[in-house]
Design a protein around this nucleic acid. Structure first.
Length: 755
DNA sequence: TGTAAATTTCTTTTT
DNA sequence: GAAATTTACA
């Protein structure tokens, strides 16, 4: 056996044990900030360096593609270029690759489409219609959710009938589930859940295939094991069964994905599943100050079900945590922005040292507006991702069709995009034909002669078929992807229609499409045998967090979920209000309060040095102002590590808030009491529902006479006059492109200042 | 058939 | 308040 590498000495004793334990099942219970990524990378490097395994014997499953990429780079630094041969990625990306090799064995082709949530929802909606259910009454989303849950539990359609038929909803779901599975197979498509479930089917039906991959992956490592669901659990158990070299890393305190079927028992029961499993805890935290850890600990101990462990640190006590008590979300964003500027100056932080973490994506909006106004650079992670944009999905649908024409869902998406005269009626007829003859829509289109169709539509169909065929041919003749894409954009008229629309919106869309073209060129340059199929597969599995760039000099804004695994010197956890964090219950579904608490724990433990909490007393939801009560979690935080700062706008607003010494406060700090149920009335001199006219002081309002502005529809223009106040402010604008004047309500018109 | 206007739902979290 | 969807009308 080769001599131990020097790098082993970078580790503490627990970490060394985990790295040296190469054979047999291993459970690493890694507390937040305890260096688990380091352990994983070192363990892999160690396996190779000690010649226990070749790089391609090892499979490492991570939570994001970005984590896999970074880990690979770090291993490369330790052991060299060999590391490139490692199998690393998310469950979804790794198994989608395996499925591409083995698709034929389960009745698919390697060019199968991957459906995202939207595609899958559309397919379900279509099925509901075909079964004469009104998608307004039976929500596709609900059915989709139930089907997804079933899949992750490995309950198949026939079993669903047995297990769940208690209500009409279950009845309908059972019916749709069966049809949905068939439809996807017919379309040669898989949804996200299938990428986990189909490999299991593959391995069960083909023992030789299973054995091939068992021999292939002699060592398996899984990160964030607490967030695996039953399907993931099952498939890795199958793979690990032969050699039992399964190493899982997780922290039950950070389990935050139960809504997508993650089962905390996978980590709790690991030792039952593998009797000779060794458990190694990592308890030293290298990330955070003592104050931050104390806050985190005081939170998590309120949960009943937790594995016992003590996280400790050698780090300093650090700063006290500040709770910002705000008037509303604008006040909140303003104060956060001010603190960022102040900390930047006082502590020498850069913008990328800050993160703003929230429970829901829509909370980002106020921050975007505030930061833009104050000139603070930011990067938004999550929300609507690039590949979910309409124009991008459209182009990708065209491309998908070239390799998988039987994919009805993608075909329906673009058959009349841009409009080419194949409207609702014609499409309906075509689909009816497809259903009655059990053909795909594409097959029906190819033989459109055989149906009695509205003539102009029929001609359009013929042109459409000819165009797709031509592009398919180009692809077959090994034409470059980028050229096929460009030709597609031209021949389909997609670009033309965007050019003709000539609105700011269509301009953005064109820019996005250019960016997609760049992505395609880049992919083609960096992959020797880049196929359209592999490109589409890769991008359909790109996640929001994959795009987060820690080098970018900008404040990061993201959900707590997206922040998992990351760390920042200074963190603001915002929107800590009841019904938001913890979230409010939907319908009568019960909120999993322990999971919300774990989520808060994750948020806290992202912070290295400086931590802020904040909550608002009122907040807009559905366009209406709502009174908010501060989160119960704030009362759970150990009182000796926090102090509350009440915003000046609250103190000034005596009408609504009366000052009292609150003795009931667990924290013992002074708080201004207010009757949170009392209805709000409109604030003076502040537009309550338009973000554009809200400023620190009126002088900052940029929509003054003479300002150049841009309107989404009317284009660019100049403000000629202005009247009214607050919400009722009106401006007269001369739009030069249209050569006309318009009077617009500032509150309604979406104006941007330019130049 | 395509567009503009009116209406309704929507906000958890994500591979 | 926005996005998605439906309705009304050209």
């Amino acid at each position: 056996m080769p001599k131990e590498p020097d790098f082993i000495h970078d580790l503490n004793e627990q970490q060394k044990r985990a790295v040296r334990h190469t054979e047999g099942p291993l459970l690493i219970v890694a507390g937040a900030g305890s260096g688990k990524t380091r352990v994983l990378t070192y363990r892999i490097a160690y396996l190779i360096q000690q010649q226990k395994a070749a790089p391609d014997d090892i499979l490492a499953l991570t939570f994001t593609n970005k984590a896999a990429k970074e880990m690979k780079e770090r291993i490369q630094q330790l052991i060299g270029d060999e590391a490139r041969k490692l199998w690393m990625g998310t469950f979804h990306s790794v198994f989608s690759k395996i499925l591409r090799f083995e698709a034929e064995k389960i009745g698919f082709t390697s060019n199968y489409s991957i459906y995202d949530m939207e595609d899958s929802k559309n397919a379900i909606k279509q099925l509901l219609r075909e079964n004469n259910y009104d998608p307004k009454e039976i929500r596709p989303r609900t059915i989709q959710r139930l089907i997804s849950d079933a899949k992750n539990e490995l309950i198949y359609p026939d079993h669903y009938q047995e297990k769940f038929v208690h209500s009409t909803l279950d009845d309908i779901t059972a019916k749709i589930y069966g049809q949905y599975v068939e439809r996807l197979k017919h379309n040669n498509a898989m949804d996200f859940d299938d990428l986990l479930v189909k490999p299991i089917e593959l391995f069960q039906k083909n023992e030789d295939v299973l054995e091939k991959y068992q021999d292939r992956f002699k060592y398996i490592l899984i990160d964030e094991y607490q967030d695996t669901n039953h399907a993931q659990y099952k498939v890795t158990n199958m793979l690990a069964e032969k050699y039992k070299n399964l190493c899982v890393v997780g922290d039950d305190a950070q389990s935050i994905y139960s809504f997508r079927g993650a089962d905390i028992h996978n980590i709790l029961d690991f030792k039952n599943d593998y009797e000779d499993a060794v458990e190694i805890p990592l308890e030293q935290n290298y990330r955070s100050t003592q104050a931050i850890l104390k806050a985190a600990d005081s939170i998590i101990k309120n949960n009943e079900s937790q594995l016992d462990k003590t996280l400790w640190t050698d780090n300093d006590m650090g700063d006290t945590i500040t709770v910002l008590d705000n008037y509303d979300e604008r006040d909140e964003a303003n104060r956060v922005a001010n603190y960022i500027k102040e900390l930047k100056a006082r502590k020498g932080y850069d913008y990328n040292d800050f993160a703003i973490l929230y429970r829901t994506n829509y909370q980002s909006r106020v921050y975007e507006e505030t930061f833009r106004r104050k000139g603070i650079p930011y990067q938004l992670v999550g929300g609507l991702s690039f590949y979910q944009r309409k124009e991008i999905k459209d182009v990708l649908a065209y491309l998908t069709l070239l390799i998988n024409p039987d994919d009805d869902t993608n075909l329906v998406r673009i058959i009349n995009e841009p409009s080419r005269g194949i409207g609702n009626k014609s499409l309906h007829d075509l689909m009816a034909r497809a259903r009655s003859t059990n053909q795909s829509l594409w097959q029906v289109l190819k033989n459109v002669d055989q149906i009695d169709l509205y003539k102009p539509a029929e001609n359009s169909v013929k042109d459409f078929v000819a165009m797709i065929n031509e592009l398919k041919n180009d692809l077959k003749n090994n034409e470059k992807l980028i050229n096929v894409t460009k030709k597609l954009l031209e021949k389909s008229g997609y670009m033309k229609s965007l050019v003709e629309e000539n609105s700011p919106k269509s301009m953005t869309r064109r820019e996005n499409i250019l960016e997609l073209e760049n992505a395609i060129s880049y992919f083609e340059k960096n992959n020797n045998n880049a196929s359209l199929s592999s490109f589409l597969q890769e991008i359909s599995l790109i996640t929001d967090t994959d795009k987060y760039d820690e080098e970018k000099p900008a404040v990061t804004m993201m959900t707590v979920h997206a922040a998992k695994g990351l760390e920042f010197p200074a963190v603001f956890v915002v929107g800590l209000e009841e019904e938001l964090f913890p979230v409010g219950s939907r319908n009568n579904e019960e909120v999993n309060i322990e999971e919300e608490r774990r989520l808060f724990y994750v948020a806290i433990t992202r912070a290295q040095e400086v931590l802020f909490f904040s909550h608002c007393r009122s907040r807009y939801k559905y366009g209406e102002e709502q009174r908010k009560r501060r989160s119960r979690f704030l009362d759970e935080v150990s009182s000796d590590v926090v102090r509350t700062e009440t915003g000046s706008s609250i103190k000034q607003d005596k009408d609504r808030f009366s000052e009292k010494n609150s003795s009931s406060s667990q924290n013992g700090d002074t708080r201004i009491e207010y009757d949170w149920k009392k209805p709000l009335y409109k604030k003076k001199n502040r537009s309550s529902n338009n973000t554009q006219v809200y400023y620190d002081n009126p002088d900052e309002d940029p929509f003054q006479v003479g300002a150049k502005v841009e309107h989404n529809i009317f284009g660019q223009g100049k403000i000629i006059s202005r009247s009214g106040e607050g919400e009722k402010t009106k401006v007269v604008i001369y739009f030069k492109e249209r050569q006309q004047r318009k009077t617009l309500m500032l509150r309604v018109a979406k104006l941007r200042v330019i130049g």
